[in-house]
């Protein structure tokens, strides 16, 4: 029978063996999950066109970012989105057309130890009202000609080249910024903690701009009570700026 020499007395104690085994299990699991994550990660791009006459577009996108582009007169609605995910846990997308309104609802599943994100790019024709709702996703409008309503919880809102009947953009914590290419009959920009900034063509507006704790600045705009166009820019703690486009 072999004799146990000094090496045996220097070997790991029961506790040392337990710790080594535990660390081995966790490290092994970490390596396996990491390798699985790396091999299963993918970016999936989907695009489609919705033809025919639509009365509106409603996007409810959760944490996804949205780029809404003006598409011109009589063009179809084009939707393109990129989903990034791992382990096959892709965002769940529900698409529906009812009452002439295209509705898209996208949500990532609640994941611990994994990724899931989306980015939407939607081209809408002129005079089609657009409604976008997100939680953490940012929303960008570019050259949209039609009424729009945007609601975010934490995402920023930026609207450029807007020309429509009404624009309602509000966020809880994000910044709201809108540049109008033509005077909208009603432009409402609100944020609870973010900054609010409106750039509109020179002219006479009914302006309600205020901030509880931030600064308020009007520049190049004449505020009159009987003006045909209304601007409301409100923030609780952020700065509020309403100014004319140079």
């Amino acid at each position: 029978m072999p004799r146990l020499g000094p090496l045996a007395s220097r070997s790991l104690s029961a506790w040392g063996r337990l710790v080594a085994a535990s660390a081995f299990v966790l490290a092994g699991l970490g390596v396996v999950v990491g390798a699985w994550w790396a091999t299963s990660s993918e970016d999936r791009v989907t695009s489609y066109v919705v033809s025919g006459s639509l009365n509106g577009v409603l996007l409810d996108l959760g944490d996804a970012d949205a780029d809404i582009m003006g598409g011109g007169e009589g063009r179809p609605v084009r939707v393109q989105y990129t989903d990034s995910f791992a382990f096959g846990h892709a965002p769940i997308v529900r698409r529906d057309v009812g009452g002439g309104v295209l509705s898209i609802r996208a949500r990532c599943p609640k994941i611990v130890l994994g990724i899931c994100s989306s980015r939407y790019r939607v081209t809408v024709p002129d005079n089609v009202p657009v409604t976008v709702r997100t939680n953490a996703g940012d929303v960008h409008f570019n050259d949209v000609r039609g009424s729009a309503r945007i609601d975010t919880r934490d995402g920023d809102i930026s609207v450029a080249g807007f020309c429509g009947f009404s624009l309602l953009a509000q966020s809880q914590t994000g910044d709201v910024q809108a540049t109008a290419a033509c005077a909208a009959e009603r432009m409402v920009l609100r944020s609870r903690t973010g900054d609010v900034r409106a750039l509109v063509p020179r002219g006479r507006y009914r302006i309600d701009a205020s901030s509880d704790r931030g600064t308020r600045r009007l520049s190049g705009i004449t505020s009159v009570d009987d003006a045909p166009f209304q601007i409301q820019a409100l923030s609780s703690t952020g700065d509020v700026v309403v100014e004319a486009v140079p």
Binding site: A23, W37, F87, V112
Partner: peptide
């Protein structure tokens, strides 16, 4: 509200596995 933990769908079996893994952790 958690639906997935890594590749696992969070249910009773995955929950038991995670509790078991809490021991070496």
């Amino acid at each position: 509200s958690t639906e997935y933990v890594g590749p696992l769908t969070l249910g009773p079996a995955a929950g038991a596995l995670l509790v078991a893994l809490a021991l070496p952790a």
